[in-house]
Amino acid sequence: MREIEAKKIASTVRDLCLEANTNLSEDILAALNKALARETSPSGREIIRQILQNAVIAKKEKLPICQDTGTAIVFVEIGQDVRIINGLLVEAVNEGVSQGYRTGFLRKSQVADPLDRNSNTCDNTPAIIHSELVPGEELKIGLLCKGGGAENRSALKMFNPATSQTEIDEFIIQTVKNAGPNACPPLIVGVGIGSNFDGVALLAKKALLRPVGRHASSPFTAKWEKALLNRINSLNVGPMGLGGTTTALAVNIEKRPCHISSLPVAVNIECHAHRYKEARL
């Protein structure tokens, strides 16, 4: 049994908040550079150049990449042989988010009551926490800081099991079209297929955690991802919705078993400012 101090979890989450919001990951930078070389629209190229330049300024000056520093979504994988001591997991995670957003000059974007816009919690808590028990004696924390504009454009549909793949494709494409300029393209498109109503949404979100450029391990799904990405990039939405060949940087699909009478599909839209970082304790 390995013991991990709750305090250590809090400080790790705090550091991840700062890191995620100011340091755009290598996979995104690589995908943007690749897109810049391919983009046919002059305004599209200029916007991608601005996004890349923004990443340099953000990292150098420790300024947030985007003013919407997002909802803190925390994925915790807890090894079964780990014991958290001197505190509670949920409290430690929220303490880390609170410290990170307060000391890092990050925007606080959470209201305590969704129907009362004057109820800002002032420290960006509560985080949305997904925890899962895994084998081993390690604790893995992933933090996704997700902006509201892209999240608002996500969609979920409970299909009939007899639905063809073409109909599923249409739903995904239509969701990206509806996201249009508002979701800050170039996008990352997370798709969940299977599970149930609540499970499929989480599956779509987890699909976003896979690095951009890494396809699904199943050859069938990998091929599907590539085909969808090609179709999305021929929609001419383009960077910022002003036209161009770079509407999405990646389509990531995750599948899970489901009930014989169900076929849930969820599409979680993510903007180019994809702020995800991990740490292992």
Binding site: Q50, Q53, N54, I57, L63, C66, N120, C184, A273
Partner: peptide, 26 residues
Amino acid sequence: VVPGGVAALLSKHVTKSKVRAYPELG
């Protein structure tokens, strides 16, 4: 329109800022 998500870059074009009204809105 200005590009979404290039907020650090855009901040460099602001030479002065002050809260004009409603400081309670953060």
